[in-house]
């Protein structure tokens, strides 16, 4: 039996046969530092009146950066198999698409309120 399973490990898999190795505490601390800095930037953007006009894109980029940092390092997507990234990224794509389309559709409806 065990023989069969070992072959399973070797063949049924695709490109990533090794157990992923996770980074150490050092990387985690650096990432956390970045997260704090980005959050601080976000809050700054909120309070600076001069940035009112560009607040949406700037905040979106900052949030995306935080999102990506956590997903890649804390959730180890950078180190794990591509399959896991796929399982996560595809729903994100659909979710973003859904969010954008619903916003556009309801923006149109807003002109037709009774």
């Amino acid at each position: 039996m065990s023989e069969a399973t070992q072959t399973a490990g070797a063949i049924a898999t695709h490109d990533h046969a090794d157990q992923p190795h996770h980074p150490g505490a050092g990387i985690y601390l650096i990432v956390a530092l970045f997260l704090c800095v980005l959050t601080a930037m976000e809050i700054t953007v909120f309070y600076v009146p001069a940035l009112k006009t560009v607040i949406v894109p700037v905040l979106l980029v900052l949030a995306a950066a935080k999102f990506a940092l956590i997903a890649m390092f804390f959730m180890h997507l950078k180190y794990d198999s591509w399959t896991l990234s796929g399982i996560f990224i595809f729903p994100l794509f659909i979710a973003a698409f859904m969010l954008a389309s619903l916003m556009m559709l309801f923006a149109y409806l807003a002109h037709h309120l009774a």
Binding site: G9, A12, H16, A17, D18, Q19, S81, L84
Partner: peptide
Amino acid sequence: AAPSSGGT
């Protein structure tokens, strides 16, 4: 019964 696939 629950083999792992490629370390995943």
